[in-house]
Design a protein around this nucleic acid. Structure first.
Lengths: 267, 267
DNA sequence: CGCTGGGTTGACCCGCGTCAAGGATGGTGG
DNA sequence: CCACCATCCTTGACGCGGGTCAACCCAGCG
């Protein structure tokens, strides 16, 4: 599965717009959800073809980003949520010590900006890791449509829930090895349209380490250990999961995308 | 601010119901949202009095829980979400090593069960820390009402967003001291109806430590350190924040409930 | 070529966990 | 009312996992 800019990012009629903030952004007419291979994991996931059409009428714009380009920055007011159509991005916050904390990565079919709704401002910044394209989902339009299309509302709830779930998987007190294993298994599970265990990660080791609360050195060492044990094969940004079962074991089964679902009791 | 069972938990007409699973639960007619002091932080937050009345008609039941009683368990299917009306609860997951991981605490006015929507089963268990009462929000009813009352839908989105926000605050790579400071400041901020910095925590040190990914011993030591520095006064479960400003500094300003909102840029 | 920036590896060290002992508190029964 | 016990919390001694620092490697690129 390809996550980097090698993903087919077709570029339809482009126009540039001058925004209030002085930025010049490249936006294009929106791709049809019906032709989008990630639609089933995304907002239109539960909609009938008619409803998809109705949904699409509300979405006018997409936005293309170069690697390193910001989609939004912490402090920006929320006009829109965004869905990843191609490429991948990361959200991060900078604390008052100046340290960067990556809070999540965003892959195809995932929604960005959910954390901004409550405070009405983006608490985190979002930046493209590779050439990416995102669907712009004006928040006002989105809520209106969710009002009219029950299945859309349902799917929004589901995707918000998925977001919460993603956080809780790595929130616990796990060892470095467990966190990395969880990360690998989860990223593989989040790939749409493929059961492939061949990951082409767009982010740098540094970013993965930061996200997993590890130093790059530790990440490197553990990856080497996994490789020695035959769990993965890592060649720069291409990581192949050779033993998903073994990784899932090490992940302490905290991957909510593949949760076993059995009951756990505690006194 | 009182978080334990000392909170006034009035007990209206009670009835017991035999459920499919064999459990006998104590449920009572629902308290009116209009008489609930946490309503403004909760689902009815944005509703007009008329809409609140409409909303209340959809909610029939409350449920009372004794300390240590489960509201739901991991693996249960989702019939309802829940709102905390009195008391406090914790959500936890047990990994396949048998270790418990507390994913969040729930205080008055907060919604529980959000993480269960996507997988349609509860990934986590939820247990009362003190005598508590929760409003039962049948999921089907809730979505229907959100369809009819736009402001309710908006508030649901906001509260889901708040949930995401809560996770991201502690997700980063922070020191033990920073995490504890963040926790204290956030818990204080989450108290409804009071600006008090006097917390009566319902959970044991053990639980706080687990939630913060610390050993109880480390938690104890850091609390002692904070006390020595005059930041807090801790007497068993009663913790008084003496220097919120100083705590917020140490929290690395990652408290999303009191976020400064200034722009942070990274290369 | 040499430069640059990311990735890896090794040596060392520190923060926090672990283990163990010793309080404090509260519940229970006599 | 006190004796007893269980549970929770605190404190100290020590060890380990993972961070830090530094050197080196390696690919890509001008």
């Amino acid at each position: 599965m390809i996550l980097t800019h090698h993903t087919t990012v077709t570029k339809p009629v482009r126009r540039t717009t001058n925004y209030q903030d002085g930025a010049v952004r490249s936006e294009t007419a929106c791709q049809s959800c019906r032709s989008c291979q990630h639609a089933s994991q995304c907002l239109p996931g539960l909609l009938t073809p008619d409803q998809v059409q109705q949904f699409e009428r509300g979405l006018q714009r997409c936005r293309s980003l170069a690697p390193g380009e910001h989609l939004f920055r912490a402090g920006d007011s929320v006009r829109s949520l965004y869905a990843v159509q191609a490429g991948s991005l990361k959200s991060y916050m900078v604390d008052n010590e100046g340290r960067e904390h990556i809070t999540s990565f965003h892959f195809c079919g995932e929604i960005m900006g959910i954390d901004a709704i409550y405070p009405a401002r983006h608490p985190s910044s979002c930046i493209a890791l590779a050439v990416s394209r995102v669907c712009v989902l004006p928040y006002a339009t989105l809520t209106l449509m969710a009002q009219k299309i029950p299945e859309l509302q349902t799917q929004i709830f589901r995707l918000f829930s998925r977001e919460v779930l993603g956080y809780s998987a790595l929130a616990g007190d796990f060892s470095a090895e467990e966190r990395l294993a969880t990360f690998l298994v989860m990223v593989a599970a989040r790939q749409t349209n493929t059961e492939s265990t061949d990951l082409e990660l767009a982010m740098a080791r540094q970013d993965i380490a930061n996200y997993l609360r590890l130093s790059p050195e530790t990440l490197s060492r553990i990856l080497a250990r996994f490789q020695k044990k035959g769990l993965v094969k890592a060649d720069r940004k291409r990581i192949t999961l050779l033993d998903v079962e073994g990784l899932a074991e090490r992940a302490a089964c905290m991957n909510p995308y593949a949760r076993c679902g059995r009951r756990h009791d505690v006194s």
